[in-house]
């Protein structure tokens, strides 16, 4: 790993976290280079939040080791905290404090120099300067998210940990948010972000897919479909619901998913998939195109393929 030009910002191996007898994170490794936008994908309860919390010292791993920003994640979490901006999944600033008071509080907690200017500047950039005396609890979801991001950027962190930052935020606000993330990344800030949204996943440089505590795939976003090796047919035409019903369950077809006015039919074995699809291609009402699988098909595939290790344990 040392051949890399710069030392990675996050470098952990074998992280394990158990809550009771449930293994929430199982043998997790990750290597995040400086300035990268690293996406964490996976279904609910897959251990994304737990992993992020272990990286910033909010949870103690049961096993594993590693470094974050050059500090040991087990023993130097105080140093890590000084340089990390962590945005929680749920809004966790003080709702009974005003916008300015919240920013001021966070600036003091990180001992930010020139606090007043920094807070003023943040308010200005947020576009909240004239509402700075409003209590944070009165803000809408999108504004809360922007405030939370501004609050964790005040101390100029080297690493941003964003836990589903755009959940429940409208598309325009999400787009603005990602523009900001991209700007930060260009400025050298490393960003680790967990998300459910495929359009956001595509924005990431690298993607780690986690399901039920295990990392299933990890690589550059462009290469993920290739790495998985999924084949897809796209079909357009009338009465797609019946066609989907007919196709579903055929040998070689692992997944039939509706994408707007088209169906995407995917399978791992290209030959079997073609054999399954061919009889239907005679119907001239439909137009069929073979295409490389997109990220979304890949993730639906991964999600349906991964087993629930909690359920598995019960059966065993």
């Amino acid at each position: 790993m040392t051949q890399e030009t710069a030392t990675p910002v996050i470098e952990v191996e074998g992280l394990v976290k158990k809550f009771g007898d449930k293994t929430v994170v199982d043998q997790f490794d990750i290597n995040v280079p400086k300035g990268a936008i690293y996406g964490f994908l996976g279904p609910n309860g897959s251990g994304k939040t737990t992993t992020i919390r272990m990286l910033c010292g909010l949870l103690t791993p049961d096993a594993g080791s590693g470094r974050c920003l050059g500090y040991d994640i087990l023993r130097q979490s105080d140093n890590i905290k000084e340089h990390v901006g962590y945005m929680t999944q749920k809004f966790s600033l003080y709702e009974d404090l005003t916008i300015r008071e919240n920013l001021d509080f966070m600036a003091r907690m990180y001992r930010v120099p020139d606090r007043k200017q920094k807070v003023d500047k943040a308010l200005e950039e947020l576009g909240l300067a004239n509402r700075s005396h409003q209590q944070a609890g009165e803000l809408s979801g999108g504004w809360k998210q922007r405030l939370a991001l501004a609050a964790c950027l005040l101390h100029g962190p080297d690493l941003l940990l964003l836990d589903e930052p755009t959940a429940g935020v409208d598309p325009k606000a999400r787009r603005d948010f990602w523009d900001e993330i991209r700007r930060l990344s260009d400025a050298g800030v490393t960003v680790l972000v967990s998300t459910h949204y495929m359009d956001e996943a595509i924005q990431c440089d690298n993607i780690a897919y986690i399901a039920y505590g295990k990392k299933l795939i990890d690589g550059p976003a462009r290469k993920i479909p290739e790495m998985v090796g999924l084949n897809t047919w796209r079909v357009e035409g009338p009465d797609l619901a019946n066609l989907a019903a007919d196709l579903e369950g055929s040998d070689g077809i692992e997944q039939v998913a509706r994408f707007g006015s088209a169906l995407h039919i995917s399978g791992m074995d290209a030959k079997k998939l073609d054999n399954a699809v061919n009889p239907f291609r005679k119907d001239k009402r439909y137009t069929w195109t073979s295409k490389p699988a997109g990220l979304e098909e890949v993730f639906i595939h991964l999600m349906s393929g991964s087993t629930d290790n909690f359920a598995e344990k019960k059966a065993a």
């Binding site: 910033c56 909010l58 105080d78 905290k81 000084e82 990390v84 962590y86 929680t88 749920k90 809004f91 966790s92 600033l93 003080y94 709702e95 966070m106 907690m109 990180y110």
Partner: peptide, 14 residues
Amino acid sequence: ERGTMETLLATPAR
């Protein structure tokens, strides 16, 4: 309960 503890703990406060 309000979740603000997470923010407080994520800061370097002793």
